[in-house]
Design a protein around this nucleic acid. Sequence first.
DNA 1: CGCACTCTTGACCGAGATCAACATTCGTGG
DNA 2: CCACGAATGTTGATCTCGGTCAAGAGTGCG
Lengths: 250, 250
Amino acid sequence: MSYLFSAADTNPIIRKLETSLPLSDWEREAILALPVQERQIGARQDIVREGDRPTRSFAILDGVACAFKITGEAKRQILAFHIVGDIPDMQSLHLQKLDMSIGTISPCKVGFIQHEALEELCSRHPRLTHALWRETLVAASIHREWVTNVGRREAYSRASHVLCEFIVRLRVMGLARDYSCEMPMTQEDLADSMGLSIVHVNRVLQELRRRELIELRQGILTVLDWQGLKETGDFDPAYLHLGRAEKAAA
Amino acid sequence: MSYLFSAADTNPIIRKLETSLPLSDWEREAILALPVQERQIGARQDIVREGDRPTRSFAILDGVACAFKITGEAKRQILAFHIVGDIPDMQSLHLQKLDMSIGTISPCKVGFIQHEALEELCSRHPRLTHALWRETLVAASIHREWVTNVGRREAYSRASHVLCEFIVRLRVMGLARDYSCEMPMTQEDLADSMGLSIVHVNRVLQELRRRELIELRQGILTVLDWQGLKETGDFDPAYLHLGRAEKAAA
DNA sequence: CGCACTCTTGACCGAGATCAACATTCGTGG
DNA sequence: CCACGAATGTTGATCTCGGTCAAGAGTGCG
């Protein structure tokens, strides 16, 4: 299968949706016609906060963001890393109140889309409803894998798993060559995504380097031994529901 | 707001959906008209397994089930408890391959519904699409809370949180009076839902009893001090997105 | 060039795991 | 209806993975 190259291929939302099901020209145009308000946001800023009642959703057009919660003990848990093409608060289309916060990790370009525009899109294009619903289901699947990762894998395996997922998702979006990518998360971010302490994450990463599974410095992650990293991370990309993109990316 | 009592009120799917948005008679009838194949399943049986490609989804009509994964180290992580009204594998409507298994805890009555019937329902009733999509989003929200619970709360708080969620969800469905309910999960089930060992769960439960927050024996959970349990569990039901049902149930 | 953020290292600690009995409950068949 | 075996719950002893604390080393940005 191959597509003609077009403006559509440069639109991250279309690219993301098309990894699961190909869209018609008609549907692509509908997406390109969405009124999107772009905004550049600096690193480490909240985009939306738990408790907000958004009237719009937003897509990540550049950079890395994360969804997180703060517990009563003021501990942060990162729930997902969001990369180009993700619509992290899609849920707000159907759920009034946000149950998490979303903030940038690196500087991000985001595109806000009013809910009415999305509702309009869905009512006119049932297959796009399907595609967007599907995206939210994949997000839920990733959450389930994270529950498992945090609940039942030891630190070393857990860290490997998070790295595997991150790079595969970037590869699917064409943002990583040869298992190497920019990784703007600090060790504190990684710790909060893994339910570990910063110090321990530091030690685990050193061990991964010592065993020559990865290289990681200056925000560049390079996987030296993909097979090895997958195995130590108990990583099976099935939960990402990549379909045909799976073989190429993972 | 009050409804006339009718057959619809005894249908758990309708009851569940109506906790978020009221349905028209027309919509209720469409749900009641769904061809449902009921089946009784014994305790501790798998209903569907990771890797399956179901052509139908199922609703829990009676009993308690759970979704779970088994890691490469053969450890089980429970991802959710499913009670009456839940459609645990709704996702299979849009995602080919199941990324988790679902099994019974107590004996269950389940109702299978072919995907075509659900697709038909959605195409005829956009508001039901909305309602079902919404349910899957709430499920995702619960997953996020579980990531947080397992990742960033200590055992004592973590256990309290799981108990709080379970009883609130039962209350919403009218299955628990006065913060007391049947709880068929064994300590092993609880351990696998909390990412803890059985032994430690046992000790944590004893501590909860000793501090007179709960009573728990012979499969009956009674909360003696709801406020106290909520506080130790850092439990805020906002993530369940109950809407108006929230005040009554939590 | 200096201050703040991030990473690293070492020492020590503790929550929760593991192991190994033993007790209790429950379901099942005689 | 009872008995018995399996599943579940309980307890104590010990261990360990990962947390905490504290200090220093890089790094980078204003």
